[in-house]
Nucleic acid binder design. Sequence first.
DNA 1: ACGAGTTATCGTCAAGGTGATGAGAAAAGG
DNA 2: CCTTTTCTCATCACCTTGACGATAACTCGT
Lengths: 225, 225
Amino acid sequence: MSYPVFAVTVDLVVLTVQEGELRVLLVRRGIEPHLDRWALPGGFVHADEDLAAAARRELAEETGLAWPGGHLEQLASYGAPDRDPRGRVVTVAYLALLPDLPAPLAGTDAAAAEWRPIGGQHLAFDHDRILADGVERARSKLEYTPLATAFCPPEFTVAALRQVYEAVWGETIDPRNFHRKATSAPGFVEPTGRSTEGEPGRPAKLYRRGDAALLNPPILRRKDD
Amino acid sequence: MSYPVFAVTVDLVVLTVQEGELRVLLVRRGIEPHLDRWALPGGFVHADEDLAAAARRELAEETGLAWPGGHLEQLASYGAPDRDPRGRVVTVAYLALLPDLPAPLAGTDAAAAEWRPIGGQHLAFDHDRILADGVERARSKLEYTPLATAFCPPEFTVAALRQVYEAVWGETIDPRNFHRKATSAPGFVEPTGRSTEGEPGRPAKLYRRGDAALLNPPILRRKDD
DNA sequence: ACGAGTTATCGTCAAGGTGATGAGAAAAGG
DNA sequence: CCTTTTCTCATCACCTTGACGATAACTCGT
């Protein structure tokens, strides 16, 4: 049998919310091609490794954390013949959503790793498109799934959850209506009984993520007619 | 540089609606491995070929039609180390939705090709899972996108569109409410001015697909609580 | 020709979700 | 103690939904 030979990589779109802003984990490349340019973290899939396992391994390497909670799912694959000058490389992109970790982000292969705001990037390879696809996937999934909790620590307030939506969607949301929807959607959030302390304003009840897989009813973003 | 070597294939989940039933295009394998077992159509990506182009090529080869209309999108990638006994093969699955073609379905590589009902399959490789993922994607996308029109010929009635939903979702829909939703969602369907003739019952107006990318409001399936 | 059957299309109505907004509760800070 | 801040609950008009009645416009059998 003679069929073309490929290399297969995984690339990661790792998103988090810091200071009310959606940010992506980027690395500065330490090797050619695209030396010194910013890129999504990623690497080659090992010989006997599942795709999802490779994604988890790369995520652990790049964040320096074994499993920081959050969410990891396959995004899409990209395989244009000229996307990598080294040869025929197909990449399977994964989307990760993480809470705001005070992570040191030790770079193993890369020269540097940083959380950067979304937008106006000029990344290596076709990573601009992969990033755009990942952000759009995240925005869309926040509507119909409880995935926003993946951006939050184990216990969080309704306001923190709302700020995730505002950061990811880039729009403001009425706190009163959001509170009604978030607490009434079955399985979205569950009360812990505890409350915040020591912060200005009335103390907020603390919640943890519920066990629903789908949000019913969904929390829709404003459709701009 | 020494990194593992992969082969890359595309596999197709080609769905259509025939006789009010959702069906998938399957081929009987003419070569090892899994000789004589049913499988999704697919094949190796050529050396200088884009993934989407490979999917379109395979679709044209398997259906025997250049471009029968319909819809083609990437589904997901599958790359478990042991999924193909020939070695390390990663497959990029595509989902195609086609109108009911009276297609001969000439097999080029395969021993046979047929439209088969969904369910209770035992396909080669990990194709059972790929098929399940494809069907679920189709079911889900019918809610939020005008994709149901991809199952229809260029001109169709509201009833035909409703029967697509019923076949894909496997549930009955009230014709009156569906008519209201389908005709009121902007950009979903556009009237042609023509009507059906010679069929029993009141003649139905004919529509063609609109230009909307998203269905607003969506057409939701019954949530089974 | 004509009624019966069939299918398409329009209308109505109550229940529930939505956005806009008011108002009270419960803390910190001066 | 009063102001400010933030959280939480309540109200209201509007819209969409599902259930279902009613009518329109054809084919078919006799």
